[in-house]
Design a binder for these strands. Structure first.
Length: 444
DNA sequence: GTCGATGATTAGCA
DNA sequence: TGCTAATCATCGAC
């Protein structure tokens, strides 16, 4: 392998005036007595090179060896190298000078930031932290999501490193192979060490472009994972039946003013087990159990109820009855169960008690009321109203305020399309204030 | 795949 | 700041 440089150097500087490394007898031009003979030598060598492929392997090997040992070989090698250098390589060289790849740097930075490359971060990546912050802290369900995220990220990281290792190994192997091949080839072809170096750098570039693809794919995978995780909060999860029932109970029992206070919302959220995964992302203070979804729910409910009262009538009816029955039960047990506080009122939990009866009355009455817009009151409503009246009269003694002749506005919605007293919903006097509030509600 | 229901988001308003 | 209204996007039944 090292024979070539040695051969080259052994002839270098021997009588060279023009081409370095070219023996003097080759530089003396066509003139002179032995000029023709030298031309003949070169011609012979070239001829042998040209016909080398036509020969058998053994013959070619022998020729090759003869050529390698030929006294003119180093000089010829140098000349060819020089010519090659001046033509092909100079063109190549101009293209090879590239600035450091900005995209590769970006990818590297991103992988580092995501914790895929570089030292492994104990708690996952910055993305995980950001995701945690975005989803409102460390809820129980979130920790599971985080661990899931971390596990997947770690998987990506592992794949990335395995692949990277493979690429590096393949790159080294291929480089060594090519270098060996070129060195071997340089015995018979004009391949200078410089060109070998250049070839190595070309190989490295090719491999780094493959590496960049790997990095790009990894970044994409991380982005997908991250977006999936971060957008999880955006995904809609239906509340379970129980939660919906609790919210509906509250809504229909506060129909005149379905604007729960913050405390009531939080209480409802707790009761409904509405978790941070259902938190509206824009809210700055999401507690572990958050009322934001409750706000959403009430907002949606109010709108949808108002838009299509008739459609919700049956539901209203059902919850009114349910609430009345609950109230009856509470009363019969001689205790006042607590329910989530009505707007800005002393709150209570558990099934909704008689404090809500004012709304219930209104709801029930409105089922029967002439002014009820679009109410499709079924034939059973009247009997239900009677039953409820009976129940309510037993529980709270509010029957005084409840007469079938009373006119109620459509479920508390005024002529302007808004709820009565809904201009300042959260500060409105609650119907829970007592029997008086029933009148105040119903008077609307 | 369609469609209604429904939770979430957004702009605009008071 | 909280509400309404419109809209988006997803779920779940069919």
């Amino acid at each position: 392998m090292d024979e070539q440089p040695r051969l080259m150097h052994s002839h270098a500087g021997v009588g060279m005036t023009g081409h370095p490394g070219l023996p003097q007898h080759m530089q003396e031009g066509a003139g002179g007595a032995d000029g023709d003979g030298r031309k003949q030598d070169i011609g012979d060598i070239l001829q042998q090179i040209m016909t080398i492929t036509d020969q058998s392997l053994d013959e070619a090997q022998a020729r090759k060896h003869a050529l390698n040992c030929h006294r003119m070989k180093p000089a010829l090698f140098n000349v060819l190298c020089e010519i090659k250098e001046k033509t092909v390589l100079s063109i190549r060289g101009a293209q090879e000078e590239e600035p450091p790849d900005a995209q590769l740097m970006r990818l590297d930075n991103m992988l580092l930031a995501e914790g895929v490359s570089g030292p492994e971060k104990g708690g996952g990546s910055a993305a995980a932290a950001a995701a945690a912050a975005a989803s409102g802290g460390a809820g129980a369900d979130n920790s599971a999501e985080h661990s899931d995220y971390r596990a997947k990220l770690s998987q990506i990281r592992q794949i990335y490193h395995t692949e990277l290792e493979k690429y590096e190994q393949a790159c080294n192997e291929f480089t060594t192979h090519v270098m060996n091949l070129l060195r071997e080839q340089s015995r018979t072809r004009p391949i200078s060490p410089k060109e070998i170096e250049r070839m190595v750098s070309i190989i490295h570039r090719k491999f780094s472009s493959i590496q960049m693809q790997l990095k790009q794919s990894t970044c994409e995978a991380v982005m997908i994972l991250r977006s999936r995780f971060l957008d999880a909060r955006r995904k809609r999860r239906n509340f379970n039946k129980q939660a919906t029932e609790i919210l509906n109970e509250y809504f229909y029992s506060h129909l005149s003013n379905p604007y729960p206070s913050e405390e009531a919302k939080e209480e409802l959220a707790k009761k409904c087990s509405i978790t941070v995964s259902q938190v509206q992302g824009s809210h700055p203070h999401p507690p572990i159990v958050c009322s934001c979804s409750v706000s959403n729910w009430f907002g949606n409910k109010r709108i949808r109820y108002k838009k299509n009262i008739g459609k919700f009538q049956e539901e209203a009816n059902m919850y009114a009855a349910k609430t009345a029955v609950n109230a009856a039960n509470v009363s019969s047990h001689g205790s006042q169960a607590n329910s989530p506080s009505t707007p800005n009122s002393a709150g209570s939990a558990g099934s909704f008690n008689m404090s809500n009866s004012g709304d219930l009355f209104m709801s029930v009455q409105s089922l029967n009321g002439d002014s009820y817009q679009g109410a499709q009151v079924g034939a059973n409503v009247q009997s239900q109203v009677d039953t409820l009246r009976h129940v309510i009269s037993q529980t709270g003694g509010y029957s005084d305020g409840l007469t079938a002749n009373q006119m109620y506005s459509p479920q508390g919605i005024n002529a302007n399309g808004g709820w009565q007293d809904a201009t300042t919903p959260s500060s409105v006097t609650s119907p829970t204030e007592g029997p008086g509030s029933v009148h105040s509600d119903t008077s609307n």
